[in-house]
C-alpha cells in the first residue's frame, strides 16, 4: 500500500488514534488506582475502534465499542466497585525495583522480536488488488464482506462459539454462587 495516494486527512487520523492508543495504554499500566487504569483502557479501546474503521473494518469497530468498551469493561468496573478495591493495602501494588528492571528488559527483547517479525516478507501472490476491501465495502455495505466467510467457511466455528458461551455462563454462575456453608455465617 503506497502512502502517496492516501489523503492527508486519513494519515493524520491514523497516526493520531494510534498514538492516543499507545499513550493511554502506557497510562493504563502505570496508574495505581484500578478505576483510573480501567478508564485509560477504555480510551485505548475507543482509539482501536477508530483504527478499525480507518482500516475498512466498520462492523468490527462497532463491535469493539459495544462488546469491549461497552460490555467487558463495564463488567470490570462493576467488579472493582463490588470488591471496593480503593483502600491502601490494595493500592500498594507493583513489585520491587529489580523485578521491574527485569520486566523492562523482557519487554524490550519482546519488542525487538516482534519488530523483526514485522520486517518479514509477506506473500505477495495472496494479496488482493489495492483498495479491494474498500471497494467491496462501498459496493455491498460493511457487513457483507464479513458475513460471507463467517456463515460459509467458518460456520462450524461460529456454532461451536455458542457452546463456548454456554460453558462460560454456566461456569460464571457456578463460581459466583455462594455455598450453603457461607450462608450460615
Amino acid at each position: 500500500m503506497g502512502h502517496n495516494e492516501l489523503p492527508l486527512f486519513y494519515v493524520f487520523h491514523f497516526y493520531f488514534f494510534g498514538i492516543v492508543a499507545i499513550v493511554s495504554a502506557v497510562a493504563f499500566v502505570t496508574r495505581k488506582s484500578p478505576v483510573a487504569a480501567a478508564l485509560w483502557l477504555v480510551t485505548t479501546m475507543f482509539s482501536l475502534a477508530a483504527l478499525y474503521v480507518l482500516l475498512d473494518a466498520h462492523f468490527i469497530g462497532a463491535m469493539q465499542v459495544l462488546v469491549y468498551a461497552g460490555a467487558i469493561m463495564v463488567v470490570f468496573l462493576f467488579v472493582i466497585m463490588l470488591l471496593n478495591l480503593g483502600h491502601a493495602s490494595e493500592l500498594a501494588d507493583g513489585r520491587g525495583m529489580w523485578w521491574k528492571l527485569a520486566a523492562g528488559a523482557v519487554g524490550l527483547a519482546l519488542l525487538a522480536q516482534v519488530f523483526a517479525l514485522t520486517r518479514a516478507r509477506l506473500p505477495e501472490a495472496l494479496m488482493l488488488p489495492e483498495n479491494a476491501l474498500a471497494d467491496q465495502v462501498a459496493r455491498t455495505g460493511a457487513i457483507a464482506p464479513l458475513a460471507g466467510p463467517l456463515f460459509h467457511e467458518y460456520l462450524l466455528a461460529f456454532e461451536v462459539t455458542s457452546v463456548l458461551l454456554l460453558a462460560a455462563v454456566v461456569g460464571a454462575v457456578v463460581l459466583g454462587k455462594r455455598k450453603e456453608r457461607e450462608h450460615a455465617r
Binding site: 501494588d93 520486566a103 523482557v106 519488530f115 514485522t118
Partner: peptide, 26 residues
C-alpha cells in the same frame, strides 16, 4: 506497517503490565 507497529507496541505494554503489576484485576 504502521498498524503492525502500533500492535507490537501495545502487545509489549500488555506483557510488561502483566510482569510488573500485582493486582489480579489489572
Amino acid at each position: 506497517a504502521e498498524s503492525l507497529f502500533f500492535s507490537a507496541v501495545l502487545f509489549t505494554i500488555g506483557v510488561v503490565g502483566v510482569l510488573t503489576r500485582r493486582n489480579a484485576i489489572i
